[in-house]
Amino acid sequence: MALEAVDVETWSNLIFQGVLLGILYSLIAMGYNLVYRANKSINFAVPQVVLLAAYTALITATATGRLEVALASAIIVSVAVSMAIERGVARPLLGRPPIALIGATLGVFYALKGVVLVVGGSEVAVLPLDIDYYRLGALTVATNDLISLLGAIPVLAGVVLLHRKTSFGAAMRAVAEDAEGAAAYGLPVRRLMLAGWALAGLVGGLGSILLAVKTQVSPDLEYYAIRALAASLIAGLDSLGGVLLGGIVLGLAEQLASKFLDPYLPGIGSDIAFLLLLLILFVKPYGFFGSERIERV
């Protein structure tokens, strides 16, 4: 009887935490996908942008002691860097083969890593936040869990709605579908691309600060963002709503793999994302919700 109770508690919390982390993954993943839709490219520099935003938040939070100032500064930095990458790197490379964009954004990843080291000094710290615990039946929820949950869901929903219901969203979709065609219809393609990157920066910045609230500000945050890339591909690079599922699948898989496989493969939890990714790419080469490309010569 007592054993039963423990199990319910363990399981419900495990699933809750897995899903919650998954939602945060999908927030970062959405940043990748927005860029892919705008530019048909992956922004490999995202992990460092996430770190940069988190350290900016830490610095402003320590200076002012206010979380909302930290949030604002993190988002500003993330959006600014994201737009700068679009203008400085992605735009000059329009029309070049993907390897050029991959190489160039990896170069930016590398350069920003140095910037993060200068700005953040690889400090480990937490953002100033009073954490209380609430017990809801078998579930234990902390203040930081609630903040990250309530912060992430509206943004994810907001971006999806923006894309589906507004004329701006329709224009973005048109660019994602066929940039040249959209230009022929008189859409300001370049500005829309920039808007896509800015939106990605916004989502990424928010994701980074929610991750920092959930865990810590530390150099390890970049690995969350690298794993989120797996969530993005599981969903399909050009899907938007799908990233929520991709993230949650990833978050749950990590916790379940750690629970069951760890005795045999210590530490597999943090790498299960990539095993999962490889398996899924073999079965569904364009992810679960991604659209397949038809090639012509």
Partner: peptide, 29 residues
């Protein structure tokens, strides 16, 4: 090279990135 039969460009880059990280895990074991 197996993923490359089906995948191109970014998906292929990601497949190789996944392989890189899994091999790192294998090395650490």
């Amino acid at each position: 090279s197996l993923p490359s039969f089906k995948l191109k460009e970014y998906y292929l880059a990601m497949a190789s990135l996944a392989a890189q990280l899994l091999l790192e895990y294998a090395f650490s074991r």
